[in-house]
């Protein structure tokens, strides 16, 4: 995938398949230590303990339409390519946490891309909430769909509301100098 935000979207699709209702997305651009960290946490059904390491294998999938699952292996490959790694923590019935680490300045690291597009795509699922925290060194931007719902009610799926959210997030990221690369 050309952008990390597309990997993030794909990882969140897994959370949605796992019946999650809350996603916590954290992006930490720690330029001082040359580390990019992406964490996706959900409250979905979790993964069986004996399967946690195995899901990095493309031949492990719970999908029924084809025999390989590509989402996690592709994301892991993107991490390994730039001296990073992918960690998976999960508890059956509690939820899952995927942590991706990359060397920030690595020449093979894909750009973050349009995170705002990923978030509004995800918000098309009315039952889902997302808490998004983006840190660039000592600056921080936070977006929480639950806060927005307090203002305008439960339905965020109207196109002009999503359009507003998209612009809002984009400005927020720009303000902290995030996602430039």
């Amino acid at each position: 995938m050309r952008e990390l935000s597309l990997h993030i979207m794909d990882i969140i699709e897994n959370s949605i398949s796992a019946k999650a209702t809350l996603i916590c997305l954290e992006i930490i651009e720690d330029k001082n230590n040359d580390i990019l960290k992406i964490i996706v946490k959900d409250n979905g059904c979790g993964i069986d303990e004996q399967d946690i390491e195995r899901v990095k294998d493309p031949f492990v999938t719970s999908r029924k339409t084809r025999k390989v699952g590509l989402g996690i292996p592709l994301f892991e490959a993107a991490c390994l390519r730039c001296e990073g790694r992918l960690n998976i923590k999960s508890k059956k019935g509690k939820g899952t946490e995927i942590e991706a680490l990359m060397k920030y300045s690595h020449i093979d690291r894909a750009p973050l891309g349009r995170i705002e597009d990923t978030i509004v795509s995800i918000l098309l699922y009315p039952q889902l909430d997302i808490e998004y925290r983006h840190v660039v060194n000592d600056k921080e931007f936070i977006f929480d769909s639950r806060e927005i719902k307090k203002v305008i009610g439960e339905d965020l799926t109207l196109p002009n509301i999503l359009q507003w959210i998209k612009e809002y997030i984009k400005e927020g990221i720009e303000e902290i100098g995030g996602g430039v690369y």
Binding site: M1, L6, M9, D10, E13, G69, L70, G71, L74, S121
Partner: peptide, 8 residues
């Protein structure tokens, strides 16, 4: 459709 293949 938004499976991995679709996103890619």
């Amino acid at each position: 459709g938004m499976a991995t293949c679709g996103i890619a």
